[in-house]
Amino acid sequence: MKPFTVNIPGSVINDLKNRIQNTRWPGEAENAGWNFGTSEKYLKELTSYWMNEYDWKKHEEELNQYPQFITEIDEIQIHFQHIKGKGSNPKPLVLTHGWPDSYYRFHKIIPLLTDEEQSFDLIIPSIPGFGFSDKVAISSETVADLWVKLMTGTLGYKKFYAAGGDVGMGVTKALASKYADRVEAVHFTDVGYPMGQEDPGTMSEEEQQFAQFVQQWWYSEGAYAMLHATKPQSLAYALNDSPVGLAAWIVSFGNAGAPPELIEAAFGGKNELLTNIMIYWITGTIGSSMRMYKADAMAQWGGSQPLQKSNVPAGVAVFPREVQFPREWAERFVNVKHFKKMEEGGHFAALEVPQIFADELRAFFYSLD
């Protein structure tokens, strides 16, 4: 376990700006807006700001504000933040990010969860294939195996708490299912989606409505997941070579149900959006991050047994700009002790509404004492 500091050479930033400057813009259909994907008009404005006004060094200092470490588990290098809570008996909590974000997803809630009496020891790793961890793609279950070794072996916690959404949901669900003797409680912002394998006769009316919505969503918005799960390498060449292409792909998912004008807000602001994109760019991990979808798909196609529902207490928060699912859907997968429809926020709630998200985590985990 070695201390880690983000320190990117100026040559990398200069190369980035040159690539933005020399972009071959494809053009777009007249009055296309966002109907065909990321708006070129918006993207030109964003990347002009990125090239001329965004200050990477300022945000690099922000990334280095909290203790970071590198460790090796099962021959995989893991990058993580470890921030001790200031309360008298802080709870160890591992927070797992998703795609297309990074460990940076949680940076705004760090002081909110560590400074009060009801505090947490926060462990915020980069999933392998993302950020400053090794560029290898492994399944969500395998990530959970690594997290247990990180928490109980490297860091020495006998038991711990876990939270995650998006890809982090799959990791957190695996933790609860496979390691119920180590995990005290879990928290989710989603619990998975109907994939056509469920028996409609066992589904409530609300669940059937949810399934119909998800099916329509997959037809209109879900092509990216199929692409990641089948041909991630084909896309990786373009995104790893072009910062504008990388930004276009990530931004296209940033709305998470929000209107276009709220895309930056969904990531917590324009600078936060660009810092998240920068982590992918400077580490060259867009390809390996997308390959995680392939790793999960191969595990499923290979006949791995579905995770069993766990008895570990689970809290679920459904934010208004996430796909809305009923409590009975969540109860199919996790032991729901707390289910709340939130009044504000979306897919990246920890960035967009950090105080609300932090209050939700604290209220649930400390309600179990």
Rank of each mutant, 00 (worst) to 15 (best):
S88P: 00
N89M: 15
P90N: 01
P90D: 08
P92S: 08
L93R: 14
H97D: 05
G98K: 11
G98Q: 13
W99D: 01
D101A: 04
Y103S: 09
F106R: 05
H107M: 03
I109R: 00
I110G: 00
P111W: 09
T114A: 00
T114H: 06
D115N: 15
E117S: 10
E117V: 07
E117C: 03
Q118T: 12
Q118W: 09
S119D: 07
S119Y: 03
S119I: 09
F120V: 07
D121R: 09
D121Y: 03
I123M: 07
I124W: 01
I124K: 00
P125F: 06
P125W: 11
S126I: 05
I127V: 14
P128Q: 05
G129L: 01
G129W: 04
F130Y: 11
G131K: 15
D134Y: 13
D134P: 15
D134N: 03
D134K: 12
K135S: 14
V136Y: 03
V136H: 13
I138A: 06
I138K: 08
I138G: 05
S140I: 13
S140V: 10
E141N: 12
T142I: 13
A144K: 08
A144N: 04
L146H: 12
W147G: 02
V148W: 01
K149F: 07
K149T: 11
T154N: 08
L155M: 09
L155G: 12
G156N: 00
G156Y: 00
G156T: 00
K159S: 02
K159Y: 03
G165L: 06
M169S: 14
M169W: 15
G170S: 08
V171T: 13
T172N: 02
A174L: 14
L175I: 10
L175T: 12
K178N: 14
K178C: 01
Y179C: 09
A180V: 14
D181M: 06
D181V: 08
D181P: 11
R182M: 02
R182W: 09
V183P: 03
A185Y: 11
V186R: 07
H187T: 07
T189G: 13
T189K: 04
D190R: 06
V191E: 05
Y193H: 15
Y193I: 10
G196I: 04
Q197C: 02
S204A: 10
E205L: 08
E205R: 05
E206K: 15
E207F: 04
E207G: 15
E207P: 13
Q209C: 04
F210M: 15
Q212F: 03
V214L: 04
V214T: 06
Q215K: 15
Q215V: 08
Q215P: 05
W217T: 10
Y219D: 10
Y219C: 06
